[in-house]
């Protein structure tokens, strides 16, 4: 009888295979369901059919083109939301007087689904990228404002006393106290909102544009190509996985992880 004691942090061999095992199980179940469902392959294509058609879409560049189009919209909308939402959140967090003025408005607008804005967005911005970007912006802007405000509000008041004690200027209070103090929370908020905006882009593309993964799915449905629909879904999932991974890396940066470091 032998017992092995593993040191902390030491991974089991083949641990990196675990996530792939999950995907493999999913493929297997999918295949079995598709075979025994009794539906034709046009209605419920199995994994093999879908992967083959994905090869086709990759080969003629369609999939890449649509993915890039979607990513472009998400990037622009998301950056706009971050560039405006975080400063607004900091301002609201620091000026308690204005907060009671603006906060109810934000809480009122927040629960309105970005999808409810679609008719207005199309009317105002026409067809193409602008309405989709506008919707993505809306979906990320409010959550970012709210989380940033809460983060600023949660800063230990002692730090502001220290800042006053060391004669911090107004700019220094923001750059050397508020911003570093809220980075961990803001990174978490960014991680959440990038997922939301990725959800929204697909819905937006089903309506207003002629490109993107949402459009690919809708277009394939009209052509009754369920295998292409599934290809679109898979691409969405893979991109989502990558975005989340990238955001997690952001959370591991030194400036974002001061809260986690314990001795």
């Amino acid at each position: 009888m032998t017992t092995t004691v593993r040191r902390k942090g030491e991974k089991q061999p083949y641990a990196y295979l675990m996530p792939f095992l999950g995907f493999f199980a999913l493929l297997l179940i999918w295949d079995v369901l598709a075979r025994f469902s009794g539906w034709s392959r046009e209605v419920f294509p199995g994994p093999v059919v879908v992967l083959v058609s994905m090869g086709e879409l990759l080969a003629d560049g369609t999939l890449v083109r649509h993915t890039v189009a979607s990513l472009f919209r998400v990037t622009v909308g998301f950056y706009l939301a971050a560039a405006l939402g975080i400063p607004v959140g900091i301002a609201l967090g620091m000026m308690k007087a204005t907060r009671s003025l603006i906060n109810p408005l934000i809480q009122f607008l927040r629960p309105i689904s970005p999808l409810a804005w679609i008719p207005l967005a199309m009317l105002w911005f026409g067809i193409g990228d602008p309405p989709a970007i506008f919707l993505i912006f809306l979906s990320s802007f409010f959550p970012l404002v709210v989380s940033t405000t809460i983060a600023v509000d949660g800063i230990n008041p002692t730090y502001f006393h220290v800042a006053a004690n060391f004669n911090f200027s107004r700019t220094e209070i923001i750059t050397r106290l508020v911003i570093p103090a809220i980075i961990p929370e803001v990174v978490t908020a960014l991680r959440m909102t990038v997922t939301i905006s990725w959800l929204v882009v697909v819905a937006a593309e089903m309506i207003a544009v002629q490109s993107g993964l949402g459009f690919l799915i809708l277009d394939s449905r009209n052509a009754l190509r369920m295998d292409y629909v599934m290809d679109g879904m898979i691409a969405i999932g893979l991109v989502g996985l990558t975005l989340d991974y990238l955001m997690r890396q952001l959370g591991d940066l030194e400036s974002a992880s001061w809260r986690k470091m314990t001795h």
Binding site: T158, Y159, H161, V162, A164, N165, F166, N167, R176, L177, P180, A181, I183, S255, W258, R259
Partner: peptide, 20 residues
């Protein structure tokens, strides 16, 4: 008239900035 660097307060619980 207010806090100043001429009279520094050392806090009961750490007032060190944890991000520095």
């Amino acid at each position: 008239r207010g806090p100043s660097a001429d009279h520094i307060f050392v806090f009961q619980h750490s007032g060190l900035f944890p991000w520095m």
